[in-house]
Simulated scan of single mutants.
Amino acid sequence: MNRIDRLTAILIQLQGKPRIPMEDFEERFGVSRRTIFRDLKSLMEAGVPIGGDAGEGYFIVDGYHLPPVVFNKEEAAALLLGAKLIEQNADSQIAKNFQEAMYKIKAVLKCHDREFLDTLEQSISVIASPTVTNFGFPDSHIAEIQMALAARKIIQIRYHSNYKDQTTDRKVAPLGLVYYSSRWHLIGYCHLRTDLRDFRTDRIQSLNILSDNYHPEDHPNYLEFLQRMIGGTDANEATIRFSKKVTRFIQDQKYHYGFVEEHAEGDVVEMKFITPHYEYLARWLLMFIEEATVVSPPKLQGLVASYSQGLITHHQKYFTS
């Protein structure tokens, strides 16, 4: 990045947050602190009202506004990719908001860059899951949740639990909005349960933002809660040998089951996994039949053998002598 581009980028970064630590500039641009000092001085000499210091960080004085920003075609292409993903992985209101933003982005592009983006748009697709294709993406109240998160406001929701087939009214302090397992989840402190809870947003039937504020520091860390809930608290090691002919088909799958490392030995590949649930790993291994062998631990060996016997017993009526 040349100096002119870096000065513009520093100005945009300063405009985006109340205060920017010196370390953030150094990390982003990969230059020395002395270089950043020189750049900030040049901006101030050009009339940009920058305040602060290296210890507390830097800021732009209230009232100064950056001239309109023009995107280049690479930046617009990155936003286009985001728009395609959002169309299939968010509710209708968020998709609509992003589409409106894309219209504005296209409006400020140069003519040949707009043509570039239109051509690119025709060549990128994100295929929706069968549920979304057949029924449409549910209203997940994501826009309202975003507003509540930013304003630190408590929300009132009506939530349907599939597990209990029960609908309840809850007051929730929203702490995080997380996308995992192909769904959006609201992680928040539930006043009804007096603890952190995970709410699937597509099961929220109604949502109102209340006037009451909350302080995130008064509640447990929602990311730690989520990590414990998804991964479990135990870390169990397992070693499994796969035939080489099947390993090429599980390059992506293995990471979902706690893959850590592997090494080849002749016609087999020995893999190490760290998993919170041996049962989960054992059921996955059944699909490989004789192409996978559990080396350790004995507990996992026993589970695979037990599940295999259970399959035989269950399907015995279809066997012919």
Rank of each mutant, 00 (worst) to 15 (best):
F199M: 02
D212A: 09
S140L: 00
F242C: 09
I36M: 08
S42Q: 01
I204Y: 01
I50T: 05
F288K: 14
L120M: 12
I187D: 00
G310F: 02
S321E: 04
V304M: 04
L196S: 03
S129H: 06
S211K: 09
P67F: 06
V70K: 15
Q88E: 14
Y280F: 15
Q93E: 10
S161D: 02
L81E: 13
F29S: 11
L303I: 01
H141A: 10
C190I: 03
P68F: 09
D118Y: 11
L281N: 05
L286C: 15
G82P: 02
Y163P: 00
Q88I: 11
I154P: 00
L210K: 04
G232N: 11
Y58I: 01
H160L: 01
A46V: 05
V260C: 08
R6Y: 05
D218G: 04
R158W: 00
M102N: 13
K106A: 15
S140C: 01
N134I: 10
L66F: 09
S306A: 03
A282H: 07
D5N: 07
G136C: 07
N134L: 08
F288W: 14
M44I: 11
Y278L: 12
T168L: 00
D252W: 14
N162C: 03
I289F: 11
H141G: 03
G57Q: 05
K164Y: 02
F225P: 02
D5H: 09
Q122T: 14
V48L: 15
D53M: 12
D195T: 10
T293K: 14
Y103G: 13
S306N: 06
V178I: 11
G302K: 03
Y222T: 04
I274K: 13
R38S: 13
L300N: 05
I274R: 15
R248T: 01
E237R: 15
E265N: 15
R248K: 15
D165W: 03
N2T: 04
S123I: 12
F71M: 15
E23C: 10
R170K: 05
V268Y: 14
S182N: 11
N221Q: 07
D24M: 05
D165G: 07
D113F: 10
K171P: 00
I94T: 03
L286R: 14
D218N: 02
K106I: 12
T131G: 02
E100G: 11
R283F: 13
F116K: 12
L14W: 01
F225S: 10
F71H: 15
G63D: 06
V246E: 12
I230L: 15
D252A: 14
